[in-house]
Amino acid sequence: MLGQLIVSSLVVGSIYALLALAMSITYKASEVPNFAQGEMAMISTFMAFVMLSSYGLPFYAAMLITVVFAFVLGLLLEFLFLRRAKMPTPLNLIVITIGFQLMLYGFAGWKWGSDQRQINLPFSESKVIFQNDIFALTELNLATLIIAVVVLVVIYLLIQRTKLGLAMKACQQNINASRMNGISANRIMAITFGISSVVGAMAGILVAPILTLDPSMMWDPLLKGFAAAVLGGMKSLHGVVIGGLLLGLVENLFGFYISIEFKSVVAFAIIVLILYFKPSGLFDKHYVRKV
C-alpha cells in the first residue's frame, strides 16, 4: 500500500511542482506571486477542451494551440496590466493579479456556464498500463510524470543554457542595469510571464481529467502549488519542485493514514511551522535588506 501511496503522491506532487514552478518563475522575475496563475491555467485548459471536443482537432494540434494561447495570456497579463502600474508596491501588484484572476474566473463562468465537462485526453485515467506487487500506474499517471519531467527539464535548460535564460537572470538581479545593457527588461518580463503561463497550463490539462472541467477547478491545485513554492522557497527553482513533491507526499500519507478531511489543513499547518523556522522556505536564503 505504501508503495502505491508514494507513487500517487509523486503524481499529484508533480502537478503541484509544475504549478509551483510556474509561480516561482514569475516571482523570481517580478517579486509578484501571481494569484491568477490557476485561472490562467483553467482558461487554457478550456481552450484545449474546445479544440479537442468542439473542433475535433487531433491532440497534438490542440496542445500546440493551447501552448500558444497560454503564452499569449501570460504576455497579456504583463503587458496590459502589470507593466502599467506606476511605482507599484508589492501589494498593488498582488492585487492586480487577483483582479485578473477574478476577470478570468468570471469570463469562464460566463462563457461556459457552470456545467461540468469532461476533457478527453488520449491517455485514460482508468486504464492501468503498468503493474507490479508494489504499485499500479494508469496511463494518465504515467503521462503526468513524463510530461512533468519533460517540462521541468525544458525549463531548466531554458534558464541555465540559453541566452533568454541569461537575460532573465540579469533582469532579476538588477532591472535598471540590464536595461542599460540593451536587454529590454520589459520584453523579458513579458516572456517570463508567458513561459510561466504555459507551465501552469500543462498542470491544468493534467489535472482536468481527475477533476471536472469547471471555472473553479484550479482553486485547490493552485493553493497547493503556491504552498509548495513557499515551502521550497519561492525563488529557488529546484526548491519549489522538491516542495511540490513533499507536499504531495505529506498530504497523501496523512490523508490515507489519519484523516482525509484534514489533509489540506495539516499540509498547510506543516508549511506554516516550517516557515516559522525558515521564513523564506527550505531552499531559499532569507534576505535581509542592507542599510
Binding site: F81, I96, K111
Partner: peptide, 24 residues
C-alpha cells in the same frame, strides 16, 4: 456569444476589472 445561464458571472469579471483599474 456566451451562455445565458452564466451571465451572473459578469459580476466577477467586472469586480476584477474595476480592481485593476483602481490600482492602475
Amino acid at each position: 456569444f456566451m451562455t445565458a445561464t452564466g451571465v451572473s458571472n459578469v459580476s466577477w469579471f467586472l469586480t476584477g476589472f474595476i480592481l485593476i483599474l483602481v490600482v492602475l
